[in-house]
Computed example of a mutant assay.
Amino acid sequence: MVQLSKGAKSFSILSGTAALTIALAPALQAASFTIDNITGTWANLQGTSVFNGLGTDQVRWGDPATLSGQSGLGFQTTASLGLISSGSNFVLGELTHFNFPVWGGTAASEVDLLLSMAIDGVNYAFNYTFTIDETPNVAGLCPAFQISSTPCDDKIDFTNPFSSTTLNKDGFKYTLELLGFSSTMTGFAPVSSFITEEYKASSAFLVARVIKDPTSVPEPTSLLGMLFIVLASVGIKRRVFR
């Protein structure tokens, strides 16, 4: 066995530390994910037989009481996000509530948004339910949530909590979080419902982010690779055969 000198040992340990730092770099840096093929379509409309647009990005309901047309909901997705860094918020699409007078007995009460996207080529799907409160447009009979001076505002509630799903990247675990709807595209100003004046529209933006699991460690194969690098660099139990 060849005995390494003190200086050589120190150099080997430094080399091993550098190698370990390089090996652990993906854990310390933000990961990037490709997010595309985002779609949002409407399904399972309840409460009326007068509707159109199911299976598309805009659903309309009710027998119009004016020439303005039907009430409805639309979801315009972001065409393609490209590379997204972990830890950063991003917008998946814009939700819009269109409020126009419809005749009593023809209003909808509930509808689902079917959201899907591809992350690094893998497809993910999420379902959300919205409740619809179409009010009688009669002064003095408006609901407690009325905020405008026009009889009467309608309300859309986002009834179920937003979802998350686990992703894997470079041996580490990440979580895709759908944070909810925001009144602004910059920052995150959450809203849980729309209260929309008659003949008007309300909009909000669906915000998401990908975060690294703080307890995540590399998969066993990755750990073995790192261990091999360190052992090789430090020179533990190095033998030279003559």
Rank of each mutant, 00 (worst) to 15 (best):
M1I: 09
V2G: 04
Q3G: 10
I13C: 09
I13G: 04
S15L: 15
A23W: 06
A27P: 00
A31S: 15
T34D: 13
D36N: 14
N37L: 08
T39S: 14
S49D: 09
L54G: 01
Q58V: 07
R60Y: 13
W61K: 05
G62H: 08
P64F: 07
T66E: 13
Q70I: 11
G72K: 07
G72L: 04
G72A: 04
F75V: 02
A79H: 09
G82P: 02
G82A: 07
G82E: 01
L83C: 01
V91N: 08
L92T: 04
T96M: 13
V102N: 11
G104N: 08
A108V: 01
L115S: 03
D120W: 05
G121E: 05
Y128L: 03
D133P: 01
T135N: 08
N137M: 14
N137R: 14
V138I: 15
A139K: 10
L141R: 11
A144S: 14
C152R: 03
D157A: 15
N168L: 12
F172H: 05
L179P: 02
F181H: 03
S182D: 15
M185V: 14
T186E: 12
G187I: 01
P190Q: 06
S193V: 00
E198Y: 11
Y199F: 13
A201K: 12
F205K: 05
F205Q: 04
V207E: 06
V210I: 15
I211G: 00
E219W: 10
S222R: 05
M226G: 05
F228E: 05
V230D: 00
S233G: 07
S233V: 00
V240I: 15
